[in-house]
């Protein structure tokens, strides 16, 4: 098994015919992902990458029966695109776009929680189950089917964790980028729950960074609910206070959200913290005793 996506995933792409949508759809199809169509308003009836294009998600649902959607539309249109997908009955929505206004996300988050849809991202690399389906912008070739579940707030840091666990032979069950924004559609805790219940996942790697309290909340949850070993790395130990480090959510404000606080809390809750970015893989090996 795996989490969220598998060979049974039937994906539509919102923003299919745009440059980003096209580039990454091509890559995903090449990886073996089952893309059943795309949505670009005004281009319904056309074909793109040999797949049908629809004017709306509702039309796509009626015609090709998708069970997941990935969104590549510009930030100001994302609120509408996410809600359109959720209201059309899509249960898994992955949003790659960076720069969605926080107020838009507040509304989106409430709405999709009420509908019961799951949103991954925004501002994230997406989700992959190695060897089965790639919903995102990550390089497929560094992944390998295996036993480690990876959750991260950062794209390129996810790739580091993936590369290290691949090089050491563990491979990954699934990898999820939850995104670097202050209000993510899904939290570390949401993903921890799924990995805990997944037979294929033997250990979980959680990559966090400065800002907010998501890692602290996850640490508390892990202590009480997760039996599988959790290995963590927190980026931003050298970040100064009051400066936003690229990601909208990565800021130490009023002394809160430091890497040290997060590492202390995680360690206290039984999480195995890698002291450095380059030692995530070796920490996994140490914890699993091989």
């Amino acid at each position: 098994m795996s989490i969220l996506v598998s060979e049974d995933t039937r994906l539509i792409v919102q923003g299919f015919t745009g440059s980003q949508g096209t580039l990454h759809s091509e890559q995903s199809i090449q990886y073996g992902t089952n893309i059943v169509g795309g949505v670009t308003p005004g281009k319904g009836g056309q074909e793109h990458l040999n797949k049908p294009v629809f004017n709306s998600v509702e039309e796509a649902v009626a015609e090709v029966d998708p069970n997941a959607s990935i969104i590549f539309v510009p930030a100001k249109f994302c609120k509408d695109s996410i809600l359109e997908a959720a209201e059309a009955g899509i249960k898994l929505i992955v949003c790659i776009t960076e720069g969605i206004p926080t107020l838009d996300m507040l509304e989106v988050k409430n709405h999709i929680d009420n509908i019961g849809a799951r949103l991954i991202g925004p501002n994230c690399p997406g989700v992959i189950t190695p060897g089965e389906a790639k919903l995102g912008i990550m390089p497929g070739n560094i992944h390998k089917p295996g036993s480690i579940g990876i959750i991260s707030r950062s794209g390129t840091l996810t790739y580091e964790a993936v590369k290290q666990t691949t090089d050491l032979g563990f491979g990954q069950s699934s990898c999820v980028g939850i995104g670097g924004d202050p209000i993510p559609g899904s939290s570390f805790i949401d993903m921890l729950k799924l990995f805990e219940a997944d037979d294929q996942t033997e250990a979980i790697v959680m990559v966090g960074e400065i800002g907010g309290t998501a890692e602290e909340a996850a640490a508390e949850y892990i202590k009480n609910n997760i039996k599988k070993p959790v290995i963590s790395y927190i980026a931003g130990q050298t970040a100064p206070e009051g400066k936003r480090m690229g990601h909208a959510g990565a800021i130490i404000a009023g002394g809160k959200g430091t890497a040290k606080d997060k590492i202390d809390k995680l360690s206290k809750c039984g999480v195995h913290v890698a002291d450095n970015l380059v030692s995530i893989g070796s920490k996994v090996a140490e914890v699993l005793g091989r």
């Binding site: 390129t156 996810t158 980026a235 050298t238 970040a239 690229g246 450095n276």
Partner: peptide, 24 residues
């Protein structure tokens, strides 16, 4: 560095090996 998380991770790695980053 490409990517905000990796940029922070790179700064941390420099510090870990005894150096000091000039920037993010």
């Amino acid at each position: 560095v490409n990517g905000a998380g990796l940029a922070m991770g790179t700064m941390d790695t420099i510090k870990f090996f005894g150096g000091n980053p000039a920037n993010f």
